[in-house]
Amino acid sequence: MEESLEQILELSLTLLMLGGAVCACVFKDLLNAVIAAAFVSLMAAILFYFLQAPDVAMAEASIGAALTTAIFVIAIKKTKRVEEE
């Protein structure tokens, strides 16, 4: 099948995205959780490209991976860094 390579790529990207989401839920250090959320946004942007939506891919990559992470890091710097028990 000539489209099996694309299917394998989509499946691996989806699994990586779900793994990153579970990591963002589990990590105790808040900076690590924010970086996992940025990874989820990046995988979602690549999946948007595979779904033939280039405008949405550009918007998600720039807003989700760059601006959201920067705003989170500024907010973490002014509050606590580690999630307490």
């Binding site: 280039p54 918007a59 760059a66 601006l67 920067a70």
Partner: peptide, 17 residues
């Protein structure tokens, strides 16, 4: 081409960051 006002505006904001 793919792009537009919102994408370009966010890129300019990240330059200021």
């Amino acid at each position: 081409s793919p792009g537009g006002g919102f994408q370009g505006g966010v890129i300019i904001a990240s330059a200021f960051l």
